[in-house]
Design a protein around this nucleic acid. Sequence first.
DNA 1: CGGCCGCTTGAGGTTTTTCAACCTAGGTGG
DNA 2: CCACCTAGGTTGAAAAACCTCAAGCGGCCG
Lengths: 280, 280
Amino acid sequence: MYLPSPTPRDAASPLRETCADVMRVLGVAPELTEAPEAQVPVATRRVQALSPLFVEGAPADALYLGRHGHFKIVNINREGYEQVLDFAGRGALMGCEVLGRATHASSAVALDDSSAWVLPLRDLRALRRSVPAFDDVLHRALAAQLQHVGEMAELMSAVAAEVRLARFLLHQSARAAASGQSPRRLLLRMSRRDIASYLGLAHETISRCMTLFARWGCLEVRNREVEILDPRVLSACARSTRGRWVPGDDLEPATEGHARKGMMAGGLQPGAARVVASLS
Amino acid sequence: MYLPSPTPRDAASPLRETCADVMRVLGVAPELTEAPEAQVPVATRRVQALSPLFVEGAPADALYLGRHGHFKIVNINREGYEQVLDFAGRGALMGCEVLGRATHASSAVALDDSSAWVLPLRDLRALRRSVPAFDDVLHRALAAQLQHVGEMAELMSAVAAEVRLARFLLHQSARAAASGQSPRRLLLRMSRRDIASYLGLAHETISRCMTLFARWGCLEVRNREVEILDPRVLSACARSTRGRWVPGDDLEPATEGHARKGMMAGGLQPGAARVVASLS
DNA sequence: CGGCCGCTTGAGGTTTTTCAACCTAGGTGG
DNA sequence: CCACCTAGGTTGAAAAACCTCAAGCGGCCG
């Protein structure tokens, strides 16, 4: 059903990976990666679970591209609390901000044993000049990262906890699907706390929402293993930005006779003005 | 005291602005802008207050650079509510996401009569190739936009309304200072609603926080004209991410004997785990 | 001059946070 | 091999912050 996914034969490989390989991971057509200049080897950095790939404040000497495993991108504020900015996997560019700074603006921490390609800044300029396709893909990757702002805003724009979590789960599902895995069975690599930080909620709230979804019958939760039983219910919930959603509102729930009260009751999306000036 | 600021003699200029001018606005040293290829003229687009510079979904044909005036960057969701993603001014790159997409992912709406330079995508590649300095600065500008994710996260990471507003105001103050204006007297170009949307709060909450600050004596509010009377109080409030802040906690208020209750009371920063695994 | 829009302020209701306890799984050490 | 401990997850009860609804006020434009 699901393609075995193009996982790198990670651990024990000769590791002769080149810029061309990197470009392919970033979606460049193989024909375009055959320039001789693109055959330069690219270093791989392995990190154990919970270890950092790079840390905030460290000198900006390289950019990283997720090779295998999973990472969380975090900021640490003065009080020592961490704020999760993003979760990254294979093919994700990490540490892009260094292009305009002298130090890293965030840290990347491996969520499980992982590896990443290292793109040293000193080589980057030369590479961009000599391999146009690489330059283009880098540009596009940067733009893709930028789009992420929009996604994050979309996530945060919903004030209701369940809506945020529903969107998060669907997003994870889409990511899994895109990498050839089942969009139903998700293995969340991050702790509830990480999710909570990412979504701007308390971790207890995440727990509660998870069990709420389970009561709705659209999700099965076994610790970090969750299974989406009814994506339609989840997306209906995720869609609702205002004027709240309870299973049965615009779609019957998978099962029936559930509590229609408990969490959720008021409106959502506090800031958000109806568009009146018709952008014309 | 404040430099007259390098405002473009906007309205009635011969408009012979070139790529070199654009590069200077983006911070490139004048020596580097003298390449003959950099003397190509750059188009300017003027927009009235409340009119869009570009709209979400429109074909991605250009990138824009703020020239004068102010813009808000917004997303509009299915229900027709708008979410403010950012505020942009002179020197801000707008619509970067088009580098990786076929259509604009967000709209830019002028907050007052404004203008922007138009950088057509079709010319962009050639320009990057022929003017290396332009390529570099574009890269750096993209990276700077990326950093914005972090800033936004910092804003949202504080759950308390006053903290968010305090950070927003200080941010505006810094922007004003950077463009040669007084960091004290701010003229907010956007409505309370816009601010509310940007900060993920209700616009009434913005109002209340403004008057709260006024009661603290650190801010004077006259509609969209606000004056920061005591930046120290404001930043002390902005700093507090957890374990709450009331004037007098770690700094005496400008005036004294104010209500120490009303808004603010609980802890902040819901998701945010103390860093325990010492990133080493 | 009237109406509209933006801003402010009040009161009530609800989500969500906080604090607390309990449970489970996994690792360590006896 | 089991006890113990820790970290992560779940759940409950209380309190707080915030949102919604509503009304009043002032300026601005038609």
